[in-house]
Computed example of a mutant assay.
Amino acid sequence: MNLLPARHRPGSLLPDLTDWWNAFTPGLAPVFGNHMLRVEESLTGDHYVVRAEIPGIDPAKDVEVSVHAGLLTIKAERTETHEEKGHSEFNYGVFERTVSLPQGAKDEGIEASYATGILTVSVPVGESKEKVTRVDVKSGE
């Protein structure tokens, strides 16, 4: 398995610093509004696989996976309520993560599955056919 570095959504402000901060201050994450999904990416043979940690959701109604313009986006919404002896506590939030697909990724044949709190998205990857266009340079004299 070849692990690839996570590529973050364009425009996200210092996502690595945010992950580091939340590792040391887990109780303060909601104060700063961080709702980023943790993902693991790998390129295995002819598939690009993204695994996202999303425990406590119903995958049929709480998760949306989409591909557009070479970007894979995973959105999830969690709403949990725990009631016990007159005390209730809830945990909710909208989580989103967008990663760039590798060259040669195909829009057809993408599969997604959810088990034990992990969403796995598998994207077929074919040969990258990069087109090189030669541009003639004209003399200005």
Score class of each variant (00 low, 15 high):
Gly126Met: 15
Glu127Thr: 14
Met1Gln: 08
Pro5Arg: 13
Glu96His: 01
Ser12Pro: 01
Gly56His: 04
Phe32Lys: 07
Glu111Met: 10
Gly11Trp: 09
Glu40Cys: 01
Ser122Trp: 15
Lys131Pro: 09
Glu40Thr: 04
Val67Met: 11
Glu127Trp: 15
Leu119Gly: 03
Val49Ala: 03
Gly45Thr: 03
Lys129Trp: 08
Gly86Leu: 03
Gly11His: 11
Lys138Gly: 08
Gly109Tyr: 08
Ser128Cys: 13
Glu96Cys: 01
Ala69Trp: 03
Asp62Gly: 00
Ile110Gly: 03
Ala76Met: 01
Pro102Ser: 04
Phe95Ala: 01
Asp107Ser: 07
Met1Ile: 14
Ser122Ile: 07
His35Arg: 12
Val132Gly: 08
Glu53Met: 10
Ile118Trp: 15
Gly104Tyr: 01
Val65Ala: 00
Glu96Arg: 07
Asp19Trp: 13
Phe95Asn: 02
Val39Phe: 09
Gly140Val: 08
Leu101Arg: 04
Glu111Trp: 11
Tyr92Gln: 12
Lys131Asp: 14
Glu108Trp: 11
Gly86Lys: 09
Gly11Arg: 07
Gly33Gln: 09
Leu13Cys: 08
Phe32His: 06
Ala69Gln: 12
Phe24Ala: 00
Ile118Asp: 04
His82Ser: 03
Lys131Gln: 15
Val125Glu: 13
Phe32Ala: 06
Ile57Asn: 02
Asp62Phe: 00
Gly33Ile: 11
Gly33Thr: 09
Gly140Leu: 10
Leu101Gln: 05
Val50Ile: 12
Thr25Lys: 07
Pro102Phe: 07
Ile57Ser: 01
Lys75Trp: 05
Leu4Asp: 06
Asn34Gln: 14
Arg38His: 10
His47Glu: 12
Lys138His: 14
Phe90Leu: 05
Lys129Val: 11
Met1Pro: 11
Val63Glu: 03
His68Phe: 12
Asn22Glu: 12
Gly109Ser: 06
Arg38Trp: 03
Pro5Thr: 05
Leu4Tyr: 05
Thr116Tyr: 13
His8Pro: 10
Asp58Trp: 04
Asp107Leu: 10
